[in-house]
Amino acid sequence: MTLANAESPRPFKIPESVLVVIYTPALDVLLIERADKPGFWQSVTGSKDLIDEPLALTAEREVLEETGIVIGTEAVPRSALRDWGLVNLYEIYPVWRHRYAPGVTQNTEHVFGLRVPAGTPVRLAPREHTALAWLPWQEAADRCFSPSNAEAILQLPRFA
Rank of each mutant, 00 (worst) to 15 (best):
L64W: 11
P157G: 13
V44C: 10
P38W: 00
V44Q: 03
P157C: 07
D49A: 10
A6P: 15
V44G: 02
L30W: 02
L135M: 08
P147G: 07
I22L: 11
H110W: 04
W84L: 15
E74Q: 09
L132V: 03
V111W: 03
D83R: 08
L64F: 14
P117C: 04
Q42G: 04
D52Q: 10
E74N: 04
T120P: 07
K48E: 09
A80R: 06
Y100N: 09
V87K: 10
L132I: 08
T73E: 13
L86T: 12
L132Q: 15
S148M: 07
A160G: 15
A6L: 12
E91G: 00
L81V: 02
R61V: 01
R115F: 03
R158I: 10
T2S: 13
P126I: 05
R78L: 08
V87A: 08
N149Y: 03
T120V: 11
E109N: 14
W137H: 13
F145T: 01
V21C: 13
R115Y: 00
I92V: 12
M1S: 11
L64H: 12
D49P: 00
L124R: 08
S43G: 14
R82A: 14
A59T: 10
P9W: 04
P126F: 11
V104W: 06
V116K: 01
P117Y: 02
K13P: 00
L31H: 00
A141D: 01
C144F: 02
E33N: 04
V122G: 02
D36T: 07
G119I: 10
R61G: 06
A160W: 02
K13R: 15
I51A: 14
E74D: 13
A125G: 08
S17P: 10
P11F: 10
I71Q: 00
A75N: 09
P117G: 04
G103C: 11
K48M: 08
T108M: 13
R10N: 12
V70W: 03
E62P: 02
